[in-house]
Design a protein around this nucleic acid. Sequence first.
DNA 1: CGACATATTGATCGACTTCAAGTGTAGTGG
DNA 2: CCACTACACTTGAAGTCGATCAATATGTCG
Lengths: 246, 246
Amino acid sequence: MAKDNRALLGPLFARIEASHDLSEEEKALLAEAAGDTRSFGARQDIVVQGSRPKVSSLLVEGLSGRYVDLRDGTRRISGLHVSGDFVDLHSMLLKPMDHGILAMSDCTVLQFPHENLLRVTNAHPQLTRLLWFLTLVDAAVHRQWLVARGGLDSLGEAAHLLCELYLRHRAAALTRGETFTLPMTQQDFGNALGKSAVQTNRVIQTLRKLGFISWKGQQIAILDWDSLAELGEFDPTYLQLKRGTE
Amino acid sequence: MAKDNRALLGPLFARIEASHDLSEEEKALLAEAAGDTRSFGARQDIVVQGSRPKVSSLLVEGLSGRYVDLRDGTRRISGLHVSGDFVDLHSMLLKPMDHGILAMSDCTVLQFPHENLLRVTNAHPQLTRLLWFLTLVDAAVHRQWLVARGGLDSLGEAAHLLCELYLRHRAAALTRGETFTLPMTQQDFGNALGKSAVQTNRVIQTLRKLGFISWKGQQIAILDWDSLAELGEFDPTYLQLKRGTE
DNA sequence: CGACATATTGATCGACTTCAAGTGTAGTGG
DNA sequence: CCACTACACTTGAAGTCGATCAATATGTCG
């Protein structure tokens, strides 16, 4: 079992090693803590709001997002995950879930029973701090979104999110040159920014006309990183990618 | 030293015990990990953006906030802390600081050297998870702000933040009945909501006219909790106050 | 091909921003 | 005790950005 898991852990290890050294022993411990994989179709719930998970899920394939449903029936997206991200590592210590996790595209996750994770935290302080670190980066991303939203205009917000998503994909070794695959609609992208579909589309068109990005279907290319980062006032510090930010 | 610290740790212990059992031994360990206290005048930096703190600061007295300065010279507030909150516990594992911590009012903090905290995490898994938990609640608050901003109208956002601040004050035993002291200007309050001072003032007036709150100087009273919570679609789950939410 | 989702464009409307001025209110010094 | 100052709060008016409504492309998949 641990053997099969190792292949699935590639993006996670890549992400971790973008900022930390990770020994073979630690990799083995993480692989041993893993349980089963599960698949979800697009638009399915990976974790249900209000539930009390007994496992934490590592996204192995696909794109997922945190969401909360509001009284008016709309759904607000408050976070996004790429391969190699734990979608609910916090659920080990925080229950019940105050939000749901939605598969934005078809997704595969690797589940880590809390039982196993707790065992790790009992015996391995260094690995514990590493897991803690991952949740802290998550929080840093939330903070950055808060600053961007309200502090920048639509164009800046979109630019900021695109810069972030590009770097996160790259840290998990999911980019091909300046191109990456983002399996979500413009509407969902806009939802994450708190914008309407129409406004989102206009912003994307503007970024295209400026020659900063190309966005065809699910393929996004960063054509002018410097200008995009400038527009979004993007400072990658918060992603904690000591390596791989280059 | 530890003796003096015990008195300063009251709000922290109150907050923790709103959700966890905390043994005398654990309290002693926390008290021993504490170092010196420091005072800051209103508008001073408690932690400087970009710095690499060697201590984490527990807010003992006053109100502080996370902020990031934008290119246009404005300052965005992305989080608030009340007595009993660690303002930068994450700085133990996350460096450099991707934001600054500002004293919104005169503040006193108790500094915990990272050296001491790391020692705790090496030897006490349960206490480690407790500290981790505190950072996770912080993240949950960020998420909730993200949902409220963009998902609710001005009135709802303000109502949500007021509900949250009231409960957080109460968890730290800082309320008198339905009244608490919020030592910040309407302008800063609005900044935390991403709103202009003018709009903020209009919203507050509306909440007053509706009879939901009273806000005189720094004294805020919740006059109609149910209506306020309804307006802000406020669900206290995310604050993880199993007790004291009543 | 037909059906359905996604993307694009135009026109109108409303919320919030900005600018500007006026009203407390607490603190200071004569 | 009153004038003076500083800062926060309050109110009005005009302008702007993004939401909403309403069509019309453009895919894409059975």
